[in-house]
Amino acid sequence: MLTVLTHRQVIVWIERTAEVMKANRDTLTELDAAIGDADHGNNMDRGYQAAVAKLPGDETDVGAILRSLSMALISKVGGAAGPLYGTFFLQASNALKGRTELTEADVERLLETGIDGVMMRGKAQAGEKTMLDALIPARDAFATARGRGASLTDCLEAATEAAGQGMRATIPMIATKGRASYLGERSRGHQDPGATSSYLILKTLTEIAQEGRTAS
């Protein structure tokens, strides 16, 4: 039974997410072409490659690891996603400073502080067809699962499941924040790219936790 994520697993999370972003680059960019400016996949790919390049490989402080991720995203992603994901991980890194492994409570805090950061930076709410529509349900599902005593892996699975639902729920939404908002009614019928990348990030972490469970 996996009870914590090690600093090593956090590093693997970043490396694995970089692979996932590369593999999903065109998909994300196509989603962005429909309601934005066709760069979200390129942005996330570029940012995560930079994050991997700058990874402090033997760092054990998860706060420091996430801070390094945050800095790489801030200085390499650009656009809206850069400051938003950058702030997400910056806030989380502040909250997790000094931790060498993450308990369930820590992961919940990561999501919580990260989301607060995104909302502070981007001033969006749930339901505006943004990454928050994947992140907020994920955090809520995580908290609920944790409340009923589920394992870390189960909490993450619940979170990813909710993120996926939230991501798909962006399809019928009208965007009122970000570039897609200019389309008004015409933004309906398209899945939000940022919600999709958020889902992918969480799914990757969940898979790592699942492998940890299988392995242990």
Binding site: D39, N42, N43, S75, G79, A80, G82
Partner: peptide, 12 residues
């Protein structure tokens, strides 16, 4: 200058 159609980053 950022990447094509992508805002530049704060370090710039």
């Amino acid at each position: 200058p950022g990447q094509v159609f992508t805002s530049p980053t704060p370090d710039q």
